[in-house]
Amino acid sequence: MATSPVGQITRGTTNTNRLRRVDRWIARHRALRTAPVDPLVVDLGYGASGVTALELHARLARLRPDVTVLGLEIDPARVARATAQLADVREGRTDFSPDARVSFARGGFELPAPRRPTVVRAFNVLRQYGESDVPAAWDRMASRLAPGGILVEGTCDEIGRVSAWVEVGADAAPRSLTVSLHLASLQQPSIAAERLPKALIHRNVPGEGVHALLSELDARWHQAAVVSPFGAVHRWRTTMAAMTDAGWSLGPSARWRLGELTVPWAAVAPR
């Protein structure tokens, strides 16, 4: 017997290129690169348009041509709209590949899918929930992952210049927090506080790890203003170097040029 999707309908805000930052992070993640043949990636809560699922496939297929993307939404009208968009793709009326391995279906946190996904991307989905709802949502989604799979749950602004997400393993345990910022328009790194995942957004207060991270980022960014004439990327790299010298683990330095840093979950876990 069919069951109703688990979860609440989101606001449905969707913009082209909005999720580019997290997409390129997923594309390089070991979970996808080393997955067995035909990995499935789920775009949960894609919103009013199916464009984010189509963009996700286009970006991932450059490294994994055998990847399949399934977009899931609770609202049947959104599924119908995305399916109509996909028909245009199949007819060659868009910039996406007509044979893109993308489909759309109705579903929520229960993740109805033909097989266990290697990656679940749930972006801007949990913002309307309470902080206490997060562990159960993570647990339900993580329980559907393929061995070695990951849940990527996070938030971004409307045009994708400020993003933050948590990597969660198949055991439903959070592993890391990643912050990704558009450097050319960046005033100060703590702008990320507005887009922290639900598990952390209320924790940006003194005494919490994420507050310590954002506060020190701001301080080091302002100190690095002296190198601003060399460009925003150089200023960010200088900031990252100073943070590292202060004892922070910030992920691969090759990612810093993208305005990105990744810290272990233990550094920001709610206290």
Rank of each mutant, 00 (worst) to 15 (best):
P5R: 06
P5W: 04
T10F: 00
G12E: 05
T14M: 07
R20F: 12
I26M: 07
R28W: 10
R33G: 09
D38H: 07
P39S: 09
L40F: 08
V41I: 13
L44I: 14
S49E: 06
E55D: 09
L56D: 09
A58E: 14
A61C: 14
R64I: 07
V67H: 04
E73N: 04
L86W: 04
V89G: 07
R90E: 14
S103V: 01
F104A: 02
G107Q: 04
E110Q: 14
P112T: 11
R116E: 14
V120S: 08
V125H: 08
V134Y: 10
D139W: 01
P147H: 02
G148A: 08
V152K: 01
C156S: 12
D157T: 04
V162L: 10
W165P: 03
W165L: 00
E167L: 14
A170I: 10
D171H: 05
A173T: 15
R175A: 14
H182A: 15
L186V: 10
L196W: 09
P197E: 13
A199C: 15
H202D: 15
N204E: 09
N204P: 06
V205S: 02
P206Q: 02
G209Y: 01
G209T: 04
H211V: 03
H211R: 05
E216G: 00
E216R: 11
A232G: 03
V233P: 01
W236G: 08
T239F: 08
M240I: 10
A241I: 13
M243I: 04
A246T: 01
W248V: 02
R257P: 01
E260N: 10
V263H: 01
W265L: 07
V268L: 07
A269R: 13
